[in-house]
Nucleic acid binder design. Structure first.
Length: 302
DNA sequence: ATCCAGGAACTGT
DNA sequence: ACAGTTCATGGA
């Protein structure tokens, strides 16, 4: 049971703490994002379940998340999958109280959990999307990374138009696996990133690389190892996928420039912190490095 | 023009 | 294991 199914909608009891509006702020961080749309306090997203496109409209009241289906109500089996998806997307299954207890004693995180109270990790449940997004974002500025992602989606992803708004789905691994390097290069992906993404798409298409097999690989270190043996996936990209797709709370992209800039700002430093300095700060975050990182990322969107 | 951006592979020691 | 080099391309 992932939620209460009212046939034409689903409501999911939200855990404490949870703030839908904080999640919407993170989701609205780029005006180039086309994988969801925010209109007033409603969040729209296109999903594909059992082979069919389904548009969802998500909203919240103090105790529930409500999922509606403006373009057609799917069958009960699909509704149940959608409830599970939304739960994963907002990381609703996690008990945040240990994180908040730790953070309330931490110099850096203390203010962040007050400011962004109820923010949850916004996850990327699709493994191919998480890895492709990681590779896309390697060593380029975020603005350009969003541009590349948008081009890839609008070139190769499926879409649905409802009341004049077009909603996009991230391209499937199957679709991308069938492309040539040139097809991504022309969108201004570098040759190497195009190679990496195509190879990973093929591995996912062929069932060699799956979320389940990664999760069964064992400890977080073993999962990281099985990711970093893949060409194009280093420590940073694997940590990102472990954070936002596999939802491993200890995942920690310690070399992430976004994290560095957030810490620089929080600590009013005139330079980015050194890795050794971050290791010192993060020693207090043990068990919750992923959430600490996520809240720090959030602090950059002020 | 210059530096840098939510890195990773490759090469040499 | 560790350090330096190369790749790659737009944003500010």
């Amino acid at each position: 049971m992932n939620g209460i199914d009212h046939e034409s909608s689903i409501s999911i009891k939200t855990p404490e703490p949870f703030s839908f509006s904080e999640c919407l702020i993170f989701l609205g961080r780029s005006d180039q994002e086309v994988l969801h749309q925010i209109h007033d306090d409603y969040l729209f997203k296109l999903l594909k379940m059992d082979g069919s496109l389904i548009l969802i409209k998500v909203s919240a009241d103090p105790n529930f998340i409500l999922i509606e289906f403006p373009d057609g109500v799917p069958n009960p089996a699909v509704r149940s999958k959608i409830a599970a998806y939304v739960k994963d997307w907002f990381d609703l299954g996690r008990d945040l109280s240990p994180f908040y207890a730790m953070a309330s004693q931490d110099k850096i995180l203390k203010q962040l959990i007050q400011k962004y109270y109820g923010l949850r990790m916004i996850c990327i449940p699709d493994l191919f999307e998480a890895l492709a997004w990681g590779i896309t974002g390697q060593q380029i500025n975020l603005t350009f990374a969003y541009t590349l992602k948008k081009r890839m989606i609008q070139q190769f992803g499926e879409h649905l138009t409802y009341k004049g708004n077009t909603f996009w789905l991230f391209p499937s691994a199957e679709k991308i696996a069938g492309l040539h390097i040139e097809d991504l290069k022309i969108l201004q992906f570098s040759s190497r990133k195009a190679e990496y993404i195509l190879e990973i798409a093929k591995a996912i298409r062929d069932g060699i690389l799956t979320k389940e097999s990664l999760l069964q690989a064992g400890s977080p270190d073993q999962i990281q190892e099985s990711l970093t043996v893949i060409r194009g996936i280093g420590k940073w990209t694997s940590s990102l996928a472990m954070m936002r797709c596999l939802r491993i709370p200890t995942a920690f992209p310690i070399a992430d420039v976004g994290l560095h800039l957030a810490l620089k700002k929080q600590l009013s430093m005139d330079r980015k912190p050194f890795i050794e300095e971050i290791e010192g700060m993060a020693s207090y975050w043990e068990g919750w490095q992923a959430y600490a990182t996520f809240y720090l990322w959030r602090s950059r969107y002020e």
